[in-house]
Every structure is written in structure tokens, then in C-alpha cells.
């Protein structure tokens, strides 16, 4: 089996939104578009995006960290959005785990979006169908493209190269290695969707100096401290699930 996915390195993401706009550019003009924009030059522009980048502040001044946080469909292994879809328009591909919506079958009931714990689906009011990240399925297998460009648009675009694409079921893939070596984690595992997208935490480099450093000359030690602790699965256990 394979499960294609994105791995997003929060240690590199500067919140530039390139992944968001490049995604929009690739997809609006392609098979899964258009990605409608309402009132594009008006008071309340509102468009469909497959990928958005949020920003959080963590901690208190002056010990503040800033986290830029891109989020798109996680292509969950146990995708609740697929299970709840009444028409079968939402489906998960056997061969690579990509979750897609077949617009032609979608009745626009929005139920799948309610079932997604992450808020990763966007409803296109104009088309009356549900849309979301397609993991650039029309790039990654696209034989018209040069081989090195058969990657998601957001991955190609990302200027800090904070986005890795690969098969997380293949332990040898770059994605799996990054998850292993850089403490990758998933969002809200307790929600039970088993997301495929992984995030790599911010890590801080510290230079440790000893007093005698000034007189003798050992190498300055560079240590990497993992700043963000991953969270235990614990939360929904006490639910009164029917």
C-alpha cells in the first residue's frame, strides 16, 4: 500500500503564502477548477482555496514564538469525509490514498465538510460542490511534465523548501525519513481520522559556550533542542459515542 502525503516543516515555514497562491494558480486553471472568487474587487472578497496559511503567536513577550501554519487536506487514512458522503462523490483512492471529490457526483450537501475535523474542505457556492486539496494528482502522475516537476505545486513553489511530498507508507521515502528524524507529528490524532499530512516541529539551535572557550579553542558546540513536545492521544476517550 502507499499513502502519498505532505510533510510540512514548521521549522522552515516563514508564512510567505507561496504554497497557497501557487496552489490556487495551478488548480483554478486546471481540471479541479475554477476556484471561484466572489466579489474579487469588492468589499468582502471570498474565494475557494485549497491551502491556507495561518499565523499564531505562542508564549508571552519577550519569550514569544511565531508559528506559521499552512493547512490543506490531510488525506486521512481513515477519512471521515469519505465515509459520510451520501453519493460517493468523496472517495479515497486505493492505490495512493489520495482523497478526492468527484464534482459530477457531488450534490453539495456539505456533510463531508462537517465530518472533517480540520476544516480542510471548501464549498464552492457557485458550482454548488465541495472542493479541496487534490494533492495535485494531476501533476504527480502527469507524464507531460518533466519528471522532476511531478510534484505538488505547493511543494515546487515553497521558497524555504519547507514542504516535502512523498509516500509515508514507504519507510525509505524522504517524507518518512523526515517524519522519523525530525519528530514529525499529526494533528488531532484523537479525532480518529488518522491524517497523512505530518508536521515537523520548530527546533531551536543553541550555541553553548563554556567559560574556558575564551582561552582554549574547542569547537563551539551547536546543539539542537526540540522545542515543541508532541501531545499524547488522550482526548476523546470520554466521549459518549453512540
Amino acid at each position: 500500500m502507499s499513502q502519498l502525503a505532505l510533510v510540512i516543516d514548521l521549522n522552515k515555514c516563514v508564512g510567505c503564502h507561496a504554497c497557497a497562491t501557487n496552489c490556487k494558480a495551478w488548480n483554478t486553471a486546471g481540471e479541479f477548477g475554477p476556484l471561484t472568487d466572489k466579489e474579487p474587487y469588492g468589499k468582502q472578497p471570498e474565494g475557494v482555496w485549497f491551502n491556507r496559511v495561518q499565523t499564531y503567536e505562542v508564549g508571552k513577550y519577550p519569550k514569544t514564538e511565531v508559528i506559521n501554519f499552512p493547512k490543506s487536506c490531510m488525506h486521512c487514512k481513515n477519512a471521515p469525509c469519505v465515509e459520510v458522503c451520501p453519493t460517493g462523490a468523496s472517495y479515497k483512492r486505493e492505490e495512493d490514498g489520495i482523497v478526492l471529490v468527484n464534482y459530477a457526483d457531488c450534490i453539495g450537501c456539505k456533510y463531508c465538510s462537517w465530518a472533517c475535523p480540520y476544516g480542510c474542505r471548501e464549498f464552492d457556492e457557485h458550482d454548488g460542490v465541495m472542493k479541496k486539496c487534490v494533492l495535485c494528482v494531476n501533476r504527480i502522475y502527469n507524464e507531460n511534465l518533466p519528471e522532476e516537476e511531478r510534484k505538488p505545486a505547493c511543494v515546487l513553489a515553497c521558497p524555504t523548501r519547507a514542504r516535502i511530498f512523498g509516500d509515508i507508507d514507504d519507510p525509505e521515502s524522504e517524507a518518512s525519513r523526515a517524519i522519523r528524524e525530525k519528530h514529525g507529528y499529526k494533528l488531532l490524532p484523537e479525532a480518529g481520522a488518522d491524517p497523512s499530512t505530518h508536521y515537523l516541529p520548530q527546533r531551536k539551535v543553541k550555541v553553548e559556550l563554556d567559560e574556558d572557550e575564551l582561552y582554549v579553542k574547542p569547537l563551539a558546540i551547536v546543539t539542537i533542542e526540540k522545542k515543541i513536545t508532541s501531545y499524547k492521544e488522550q482526548i476523546f476517550d470520554d466521549f459518549m459515542s453512540p
Binding site: H17, A20, Q44, P45, E46, G47, V48, W49, R52, V53, Q54, T55, Y56, E57, V58, G59, K60, E65, V66, I67, S113, R121, E122, F123, Y185, L187, Y199, P201, I228, T229, S230, Y231
Partner: peptide
């Protein structure tokens, strides 16, 4: 997945509401 009691959303990634 960030262990800090003070986390605040500064931007939703857009200046406007969305779905």
C-alpha cells in the same frame, strides 16, 4: 501540538471570512 498556555491566532490567512 504546541505545549504552551499562551497561543493566539494572529491571522487566519485571509483578511476576510471564508467557508
Amino acid at each position: 501540538v504546541m505545549n504552551d498556555p499562551n497561543i493566539r491566532l494572529m491571522s487566519t490567512g485571509t483578511s476576510y471570512e471564508h467557508y
